[in-house]
Design a binder for these strands. Sequence first.
DNA 1: ATTTGATTTAGAATAATTCTAAACTATGTT
DNA 2: AACATAGTTTAGAATTATTCTAAATCAAAT
Lengths: 145, 145
Amino acid sequence: MKSLKQMDRGALSDALDHAGQRTTPQREMVFSVLLDERNHPTADEVYTRTKSRMPTISMATVYNCLEALVTCGLVKQVNIEREPTRYCPNLSPHAHFHCRETGRVYDVPVPEGMMKDLVKVLPGNYSADSVELVFRGHLEKGKTK
Amino acid sequence: MKSLKQMDRGALSDALDHAGQRTTPQREMVFSVLLDERNHPTADEVYTRTKSRMPTISMATVYNCLEALVTCGLVKQVNIEREPTRYCPNLSPHAHFHCRETGRVYDVPVPEGMMKDLVKVLPGNYSADSVELVFRGHLEKGKTK
DNA sequence: ATTTGATTTAGAATAATTCTAAACTATGTT
DNA sequence: AACATAGTTTAGAATTATTCTAAATCAAAT
């Protein structure tokens, strides 16, 4: 898909607007790239993909756009073991699985409410606004996905 | 505490030995530093603390020692949001809490078996050997710890 | 004693990310 | 419409944690 669906375009400008930021062609393109292939790309990968559709974009702009998208809440950063930051447009609560063999990261759906329940292990004076759950291991032979 | 307790010294050389590595004064000192003040120091902080007791040690050696300790299983790396890697000698299953205000990281004890139970959310073909659970937020006024 | 291999060390190299300052773009105001 | 203002993009420099390199040191084993 080469461009943003109307729905996503709307969500994007709403979210940017709400954060006091402008909707620009670069931001639309980067967002589109993220929605298009949701395999947790790094900034560098996002740069390569975006550049193929918008050859004049710079690495700095890709970082700027990603930051804007994170700030306005449409994208989440995924950090695994000090590897380069990956970007994920999946906003529903989920965990991550990191395959040691391929290095790939997979979203893992979790039962409704589970992420919230986890917070209950915290002592009373700890107030958490985010919960991250990351598994590491390998995929059994068979499925690739 | 300036030096390793006999118990820890034994655990250290056993573990190093088991991994085919030698017990050296630098490794003992770095391990001692980690056991001494368990506030998830970064390599840089470990370097500073170790240097105060062993002024000739180098940064490279600190990294080497930390890597040796991680490899032989006595220490775990804790990575939060692409910040510098922290080192933690707490081997019992636990979660982490990252305070956005102070940047500090706290160990959070979890109910027996909980970390293992979390693995059950994974699809059958996902085989996890490690589970990481990180909360981010802030500490309510009152206790500092 | 000598060889062998591991370890330590200082400093160079790497790599992801952030910063800087100039050019560009869009928006709102008269 | 012209202009001021503020936000955005851009290339390249700077930063920073970490890894690499190669020489020096050390320790164990022949």
